[in-house]
Design a binder for these strands. Structure first.
Lengths: 137, 137
DNA sequence: GTACTTGCAAACAGTTTGCATAGGC
DNA sequence: GCCTATGCAAACTGTTTGCAAGTAC
């Protein structure tokens, strides 16, 4: 998602309703570069909008993913993380602190096919130790 | 893992026991290029060795991953898939048939660092429609 | 008014664990 | 004989769903 108003417009176009809950979720996601889990998003939304339920958050995330406004990352083995930035970039997971960090390599091109198979999406995950954790030694 | 004998040797070196269950699991994994899930491995092992339990299979997979003989893939959102081939290569998931296919791009090098973060591993996942599924149209 | 959305609580799937028994070494 | 591995079943985690009540449009 680029910003909240554009995403609201996209929802409207798609025939989806603009509920306070959805707006609160978009507000939280907008500009969030921490790649939060569904639970983390729920906690954050709830701190601003205490009456929201987890089911609503989860369903909304699936809706947003369905219309291409956010992306689900499988960089963790045990849970999904969500990325409101759908522009092409890679991700780094620090095994020490658990943070997921955006990475922008020189070549971000996605091949149209690999080994004769048609590619519509590509995810690159790096694993290791982040600069902050290395510094803190 | 390269083959069963070498992996048995690796287990022995590490002080792990060579049980019939472990050998059966290695036998199944050896040369398996289908990237099976834990359940699939369990089913296959059980067809040859009916008294084995799922817990044993699962624990053994974790052991094998721990000593670097196999690798867990997070290419699926809902389950892990295991790859006995630990040599560097990429993976393609066909959204239609669900198969995971090995991909060998020209450049398989893993950068030592990205954005100042120390990288010890890299996974590249492609998503799309495989050649077989395209042909079957 | 209609259709979609919410919220709850329960179902689910895959993964993980505790512990008594069995068995490799 | 020691100590790890096995097997069972139950616990756990994250995800997903059914359905009645509420609400955007």
């Amino acid at each position: 998602m680029k910003n909240v108003p554009d995403t609201l417009e996209k929802l409207r176009e798609t025939g989806l309703k603009l509920t306070p809950q959805r707006m609160a979720i978009l507000e939280v996601l907008s500009g969030d570069t921490s790649h939060p889990s569904a639970q983390a998003i729920y906690q954050e939304v709830r701190s601003r909008y205490p009456m929201i339920s987890f089911a609503t958050v989860y369903k909304t995330l699936k809706v947003l993913e369905g219309i291409g406004e956010i992306r689900a990352l499988t960089i963790n083995e045990d849970k999904l993380n969500f990325d409101p930035d759908t522009s092409p970039h890679h991700h780094f997971l620090c095994r020490r602190c658990g943070r997921i960090i955006d990475v922008m390599p020189a070549d971000l091109s996605v091949p149209q096919s690999v080994g004769g198979h048609k590619v519509d999406r590509c995810q690159v995950y790096y694993y290791g130790e982040c600069a902050d954790c290395i510094d803190s030694d």
